Simulated assay, not measured.
Amino acid sequence: MYQKVALAIAFSPRMEALISETKRLVELFGSDLILIHVGKKTEELEAKLDEIISKTGLDKLKTKLIWKEGKPVKMIIEACKQEQAELLVAGALKREGLLTYYMGSVGRKIIRKSPCSVLTLIEPKVASTVFEKVVLNGTQLEITAHVIKSGIDFSKCVKADQVHILNEIKMYGLLMGTASEDSEEEASQTRRQLVQNEVDYVEGILKNIDQGDLKINIKVTGGRWAVELARFCEKIDADLLVVGDDHKLNFFDRIFPHHLEDLLSTLPCNLLIVKN
């Protein structure tokens, strides 16, 4: 699925867990691994990293180490471009004293500027995370077909038990269907048709994708898709949420947070952000 996977590492207590998680993924994908560390290269750090690589059982022939000095975001993005990485793995931060997670300013910049897809792990484990329940964003966006295909391909690789595709009724259509002078029965029919339109949209994408043995459930909701996705993930205790990002942050997004920014503020679960 991914030929080259990059992992941005720091010498923190979670480094071994992140490397272990990424090792499992590169083995599933048959990928080469690129380890990126931004900081001064010393004999002590080299020895420590070599010890962890040996301990986790990484294939050294398929693992490349890159040491860079400079601004973390710039150096990580530069390394991903130079190595033509297709997936960047990173850890999320936990809010002190709260059972919620968030991406700090460095994490947000990496996601926005990354030339490849980004997988954010909120609780990396040495024993490896199990991705049993996966949720895909099916909202009608330009990137949605690519998001659904990438999510299904990922789900097949990790042998997910459940895959849910969550789509939203466009609010203007819902309001039109409920605020007209039609009878209640006619309004209900309009709402049913709006729901069916969204189901048809997703099914139209799915018919061109090899789904393997996956069990796929299509669910339609109303409201802001970022909020509804977070709620649904929390409700079913999802292991992974897959969304797309083909949007470049602009001045107005800094004033009025974008949907993706909402998700990054409080991550409901592990997050795969698919890039075109």
Rank of each mutant, 00 (worst) to 15 (best):
Y2A: 10
L7Q: 06
A8K: 03
P13I: 08
M15G: 02
S20V: 09
K23M: 11
R24C: 02
G30C: 05
G30F: 07
L33Q: 01
H37N: 15
K40P: 01
E43L: 09
E43G: 10
E44Y: 10
L45E: 09
E46C: 08
L49D: 03
L49W: 03
L49R: 04
D50S: 14
E51M: 07
K55N: 12
T56Q: 13
T56A: 13
L58R: 06
D59Q: 12
L65V: 10
V73K: 07
K74T: 11
A79K: 04
Q82M: 13
Q82E: 15
Q82A: 15
Q84Y: 06
E86M: 01
V89A: 04
V89E: 02
A90F: 05
A92Q: 06
L93E: 15
R95D: 10
E96C: 01
T100M: 03
T100V: 12
M103D: 02
G104K: 04
S105M: 09
V106L: 12
G107S: 15
I111K: 03
K113D: 11
V130I: 10
F131S: 00
N137E: 11
N137C: 15
G138M: 08
G138E: 07
E142K: 14
A145Q: 11
I148R: 07
S150N: 09
I152M: 04
S155P: 05
D161F: 07
D161E: 13
D161I: 09
G177N: 12
T178W: 01
E184F: 13
E186K: 14
E186F: 11
Q189W: 06
T190M: 14
R192I: 09
V195M: 05
K207M: 09
N208Q: 07
N208K: 12
D210Y: 15
G212W: 05
L214T: 08
K215C: 07
K215D: 11
I218T: 13
K219Q: 11
R224Y: 11
L229S: 02
A230G: 07
R231I: 02
R231V: 00
I236F: 01
D237T: 10
L241W: 00
H259Q: 12
E261F: 08
L267D: 03
L271A: 03
